[in-house]
Computed example of a mutant assay.
Amino acid sequence: MLNLILMIVVFFCSFAIGYLLISRVPPLLHTPLMSMTNAISAITILAALILFAVPTTPVEKIFGSIAIITATFNVVGGFAITHKMLKMFKGKKKQA
């Protein structure tokens, strides 16, 4: 039970700090920030997978599953948006 409380406290603290930091980023830096959040989400996926390597309670398994699903959604969405943005900057090919 103590592990669950600790995980919840860490989640809320990281949420608050992340929100405060990201809300103050100028629009020019959003693309590099998106790359960084993709990396952080990948770390979240690895950490949640490591959580499943040890005996856990059903509640911890639910939280781990939610972490994997949301972080995967963030990584895939981030790469899709980055791909779209990079596509916008490619020059159009001239036809001969």
Rank of each mutant, 00 (worst) to 15 (best):
M1I: 01
M1E: 09
M1Y: 05
L2S: 04
N3Y: 14
L4V: 07
L4N: 06
I5H: 02
F11R: 10
F11V: 09
F11M: 13
F12M: 03
F12T: 06
F12N: 04
C13T: 13
C13P: 05
S14W: 10
S14D: 04
F15E: 03
F15H: 07
I17V: 15
G18D: 00
Y19F: 14
Y19E: 11
L21C: 10
I22G: 02
I22S: 12
I22P: 00
S23W: 03
V25W: 00
V25N: 00
P27K: 09
P27D: 07
L29T: 02
H30V: 12
H30C: 12
H30F: 15
T31A: 05
T31G: 05
P32D: 11
P32T: 08
M34T: 15
M34P: 01
M34H: 09
T37Y: 15
T37I: 13
N38C: 15
N38Q: 06
I40M: 14
A42T: 08
A42S: 12
I43L: 12
I43P: 01
I45F: 04
I45E: 01
I45D: 03
L46Q: 04
L46R: 05
A47D: 01
A48I: 06
A48H: 05
A48R: 04
A48V: 09
I50G: 05
I50H: 05
L51P: 01
V54M: 03
V54A: 15
P55M: 06
T56V: 06
T56A: 05
T57C: 04
T57Q: 07
P58H: 09
P58K: 04
K61M: 06
I62M: 14
G64Y: 03
G64E: 00
G64A: 11
S65V: 12
I66W: 13
I66V: 13
I66K: 01
A67K: 04
I68D: 02
I69Y: 13
I69G: 11
I69F: 13
T72E: 03
T72Q: 07
F73R: 12
F73P: 00
F73H: 11
N74I: 06
V75F: 05
V76P: 06
G77S: 15
G77A: 11
G78E: 07
A80M: 10
I81C: 02
T82V: 10
H83T: 09
L86V: 07
K87P: 00
K87N: 07
M88G: 01
F89A: 13
F89S: 12
K90T: 12
K90N: 04
K90C: 11
G91S: 11
K93Q: 11
K93S: 05
K94E: 13
Q95R: 06
Q95E: 15
Q95N: 09
